[in-house]
């Protein structure tokens, strides 16, 4: 398949119901940080973006949401795919992006480089969709905050060592700051800016 045809294929098969299902999973996961949701949608974005991250893109993005892509994603057929399937344009600057997509293995920029929102409008911030290897097997992290009864635990593989520090800085800016949607395979986990992450002693 050529790059051209790739851009026009691989959207939702049943857009109304698939987008609703993906959204509900995201809503549940954002409301209950640490909860792992399944994304069973049938989209096939151009590589290297994975189907689950592509489904998140088609669920939330459109011509009102500019998207920042990593250099590898920007160089792939993804910009054309997003333009055709979502009507979304690519943001030149991280500061102007409503969403950002970071594929597995790419460098995760410091969250402070993205739109943080303002103190009056903290919602005007970037939501980052970050693909990682797995939610288990890595350094154990404890999650507390709204949406969590006592404590949740995750052990993500594929986030940089600096992640807890990036996140602590993000948390300190509340109500400003970014929100994260982590994707591992066809599973998803959300970290709203309210979540407090502490590194557990192994």
């Amino acid at each position: 398949m050529s790059l051209d045809t790739l851009a026009f294929a691989g959207g939702f098969q049943k857009p109304v119901f698939e987008a609703q299902a993906v959204f509900r999973t995201l809503m549940d996961c954002m409301a209950r940080p640490g909860t792992i949701g399944d994304i069973a949608a049938t989209v096939t974005p151009p590589r290297p973006l994975t189907p689950a991250a592509g489904a998140v893109a088609l669920t939330l993005c459109d011509h009102d949401t500019s998207i920042w892509l990593t250099p590898a994603l920007a160089a792939s057929a993804l910009p054309g795919w997003l333009a055709f399937n979502a009507g979304a344009a690519i943001a030149d600057e991280r500061q102007n992006a409503r969403f950002a997509f970071i594929e597995k293995g790419a460098m995760l920029p410091n969250f402070c480089l993205f739109a943080q929102g303002t103190q009056e409008y903290p919602d005007r911030s970037t939501t980052l969709v970050v693909e990682i290897e797995s939610f288990e097997g890595g350094r154990p992290l404890a999650l507390t905050g709204p949406g969590i009864r006592t404590e949740e635990g995750i052990a993500p593989v594929g986030l940089p060592d600096m992640f807890p520090q990036f996140w602590a800085e993000n948390r300190q800016k509340f109500p400003r700051g970014v929100d994260l949607i982590l994707v591992a395979g066809d599973r998803v986990l959300c970290l709203p800016r309210t979540t407090i992450i502490s590194v557990k002693e192994a």
Partner: peptide
């Protein structure tokens, strides 16, 4: 729906 859904996710986060 997308516009409202985006607003809901932000509302949950703040």
């Amino acid at each position: 729906k997308r516009m409202i859904r985006r607003a809901i996710l932000k509302a949950i986060a703040i």
